[in-house]
Design a protein around this nucleic acid. Structure first.
Lengths: 347, 347
DNA sequence: GGAGCACGCTACATCGTTGTAGAAGCCGGG
DNA sequence: CCCGGCTTCTACAACGATGTAGCGTGCTCC
């Protein structure tokens, strides 16, 4: 079977010679061109099988000007939300004949900018990008000359298609859920001081809205900062909030990792969840269904985000409607109620 | 013909024209060839900057016969261990100038075979492969004609470099840890009936060894099956074990996801961990440090596995020593003791 | 002061595929 | 019986880069 040595010496040339046809006919067979006599097609296919021929993708890419690869730029795969998102994007892309190249930016601004201009970009037909560290000063960098879909609320009038959930609305609903349970001293874990356009800012905004609508004022002492949205930073922030002595009867983790970090601290301090403090997260990563207690969270429609993003990108790549104005697709969210807010009745 | 009006319209040709040099000189500048007069180099660099030229990677790949891409085939990114492993591999590869293409096999045999023969393979210079579903009957398929490094204990005399931890020894140590704590009725979660070569079999083997050395016999009723190593299957298996009524004072989850699923069930049933039942996992995923209780586990040296695998693969790709016999690198492991076996003293 | 070498640069072929244009055979309709 | 159109296939020229030769310089060294 594996007659070919490394370097896959077999080219269309050799297949053509063996089948007694022109090289272009081999190409036509490989690409499913319709006007080929069945007999010829069979001969070519036999030759391909005999020689173990495989198309040289690099040559095809050069000639076609397309690679069939799309980039997916996320902060880190070790963050469960992005690992699960990558999983979904890869599946969606595969179903459409595309392959995904993952780039990790580590939420570092320089690396995010590199993704937009870097060399690697030339290997891909388009990019699905989840920017976290870019600020208004980087708006210009988003004006790229290749197909791109941005994940997250439209920022700086980003000149690209956007796929996002309604962060403000979802955060408001999450906060409302806590208010409905009678909680009044709701802390936030994961705020970004000074930020006005990112997910942190939008979710805090939803939190504020819910409180204000309930006639409550926002106590700054309850808003805990956390730069990176990891379990460790969530734990640190929770510690600080508890140490500060401020009264707290609920915690809103701006993502699940933060909430799980907070949960960990509460458990270590033997603070009853949800008895003394209720906790809600955001993202609905698989882990939230197995933590102790299980974590109430906001499900952002991950599959929907992934398939929509891939579809939008593919449409841009294929230039179905070249001058179609940029769209913003807002996906559905859902509050998944679990033990961390309503206790064991939920299980 | 619609000459793509993407940014890549600029070629070396145009840069050469503008700088007043030959196209090869541009290539030489781009590739850091040393014998170029500073003045020439500057002129070329200026032209590159002016035109916003970027190398066409497809053309380079074709000419060079290499792509700078390596494949990483894992079951699923939504399994935290593989997401964290992918993270490490991507970083290690990046540090060596390589880009990683992730393929998800879903632990499905057909898809694992595809990875070995598929088209996509032609796009990469080599493959790092973590096979889970292949059996002895697939040994032949592993004889591939491209550089490959396998993750996991050498199986079927696999004709490739291997990077692995010592599964048997590590499982023995994990079991020993439980024995040292006085546990005698140690259940296993995640066994694969009939399997003899995979991680499951090897870890169960280590478990048996530890018990036998302690003069205990292995009670088949304590060995719980679980096909996929997910949280959900771990939970199911734990349920079954508890329902069976067999006496249990400890649980060895063959990976962390299984152990966390088991932990979830124990928590739901208000069984004290580690008071009544101690739990140990395997992989040391980040989540284990934040669960309630935190999970004792076996750390397999993930970073070491990733960097070693990339280094071995790179050596094969560069043919440093073409006929070097295949090596098997066994990485260090470590028992990370946390609350699920020794209680809160550990925190 | 000529042989020999290190520079600095260029011309050309080439990697393996696919788009374009068109040739040859066959068929049916006028 | 010839023209035009459909099939089927082929020759050739790209795609954009890099490896291989090789050609002038100008310098060193004896």
């Amino acid at each position: 079977m594996s007659t070919a040595r490394r370097g896959s010496a077999v080219t269309m040339h050799e297949v053509a010679a063996r089948a007694g046809v022109s090289i272009k006919t081999v190409s036509n067979v490989v690409n499913g061109y319709q006007y080929i006599r069945p007999a010829t097609k069979e001969r070519v296919e036999a030759a391909i099988a005999d020689l173990g021929y495989q198309v040289n993708i690099s040559a095809r890419n050069l000639r076609r000007g397309r690679t069939g690869l799309i980039g997916l730029a996320v902060p880190e795969l070790s963050l469960p939300y992005f690992a699960e998102l990558a999983d979904s994007v890869i599946r969606a892309a595969e179903a459409r004949g595309l392959t995904v190249l993952i780039e990790q930016t580590g939420s570092v601004r320089e690396r995010e900018l590199e993704v937009l201009s870097g060399q690697r970009r030339h290997l891909t037909d388009g990019l699905i990008f989840s920017p976290l560290a870019l600020g208004p000063q980087d708006a210009a960098a988003l004006h790229v000359d290749f197909p791109m879909v941005l994940l997250g609320e439209r920022i700086f009038g980003g000149p690209a298609d956007h796929v996002t959930m309604n962060n403000v609305e979802a955060a408001r609903a999450a906060t409302q859920h806590l208010l409905d349970l009678g909680r009044r001293r709701i802390a936030v874990v994961g705020a970004h001081e000074g930020e006005t356009v990112g997910s942190a800012a939008l979710r805090v905004q939803g939190y504020r809205q819910a409180l204000e609508e309930a006639g409550l004022s926002v106590d700054p002492a309850l808003v805990g900062e956390a730069g990176l949205w990891h379990r460790a930073t969530g734990a640190d922030t929770m510690e600080r909030l508890l140490e500060s002595g401020v009264e707290i009867d609920a915690v809103f983790g701006l993502n699940d990792a933060l909430a799980l970090g907070a949960l960990h601290v509460l458990h270590a301090r033997r603070i009853d969840v949800p008895g003394q403090i209720a906790v809600i997260g955001f993202d609905d990563i698989e882990e939230t269904a197995y933590s102790s207690p299980t974590l109430t969270t906001v499900a952002p429609g991950r599959e929907q985000i992934a398939t929509t993003a891939v579809d939008l990108l593919l449409a841009r790549i294929q230039e179905v409607e070249p001058d179609k104005p940029f769209v913003q697709v807002v996906t559905d969210f859902e509050i998944v109620v679990r033990e961390s807010t309503v206790g064991e009745q939920a299980s």
